[in-house]
Simulated assay, not measured.
Amino acid sequence: MMIHADKCIELGLPVPESYHNQLSYVLCVITQGIKLNTRLARYIGIHNLHSLASTLKYKGYKFKVEHGRVPCPFTGKIPSHPVDILSMSYEQIKAYKNERSRQEN
């Protein structure tokens, strides 16, 4: 499934690189301190954010999953149904970057 770069730019999200798959792109976004929710993910072409979150957890990544009402980028309205909101705290981002730099050395 393709991630739509034009829609990422429109939402102020990082531009997906050629090597990004959906899983690595979600990780890229949340490690930059950006909250990614189900509605934003669907708008940019990621239709299974909950499954990707499960995979990231299984792989040992530490992040938060909250549930809340968020605006829909398609309509601009806030639907009544809460969705998943993925994010990383400052400490989680720091730990991720430290671990990544250890793996590169």
Rank of each mutant, 00 (worst) to 15 (best):
G12H: 04
K59G: 08
A5V: 07
E10I: 04
A41K: 01
A95K: 15
P79G: 09
I78G: 12
E104C: 11
P73L: 08
I3R: 01
S54F: 06
G12A: 05
K57S: 14
E10G: 00
P16V: 02
K7N: 04
G12V: 02
S101P: 12
N105T: 14
Y19V: 08
P82H: 09
V83P: 02
L11I: 06
Y43E: 01
K97Q: 15
I46A: 03
T55M: 08
Y90A: 15
Q22G: 11
G12Y: 02
K59M: 14
I9C: 00
K64C: 13
M88S: 05
T75G: 10
S80M: 14
I3N: 03
I46G: 02
I34F: 03
K7L: 05
I46Q: 02
V70M: 11
M2R: 09
L49I: 09
Q92T: 10
R100G: 13
H4A: 07
C8T: 01
H67A: 13
N48A: 10
F63C: 09
N21T: 12
K94F: 14
L86G: 04
K7V: 03
E10A: 09
C8A: 02
I44R: 01
K62L: 09
T75N: 13
I34Q: 01
S89G: 12
Y58I: 13
P16K: 00
I78T: 15
Y96D: 07
R100P: 13
C72N: 13
A53H: 04
E91I: 11
S24Q: 06
Y61I: 11
A5S: 13
I44W: 02
R42W: 05
Y43I: 01
G12L: 07
P14H: 00
I93Y: 06
S18E: 10
G60A: 05
Y58P: 00
K64V: 14
S80V: 13
K35S: 11
N98V: 15
E99G: 12
Y61D: 07
R69E: 12
V70Y: 03
L36N: 03
K7W: 02
S87Y: 09
Y90S: 15
P73C: 09
K57W: 07
E99M: 12
H4L: 10
V83L: 03
Y90E: 15
I46F: 02
K97E: 15
S80W: 10
E17G: 01
K77N: 14
I3V: 13
Y43A: 01
L86T: 05
L52F: 06
L36V: 03
N48V: 07
V70L: 06
V26L: 05
N48F: 05
H20T: 04
I9G: 00
T55K: 11
P82D: 08
H67P: 02
L49W: 03
V26F: 04
K62G: 05
T75S: 15
K59E: 14
S101H: 13
G33L: 04
C28T: 13
L52C: 05
S89D: 13
M2T: 12
L13A: 01
E99Y: 09
P79L: 11
P14F: 01
L27P: 05
V65G: 05
A95P: 07
K57V: 08
R42L: 09
S87V: 11
K97P: 09
Y43V: 02
G45T: 03
Y96K: 08
M88H: 05
D84W: 04
T55Y: 00
E91V: 11
G60Y: 06
A5M: 05
H4C: 07
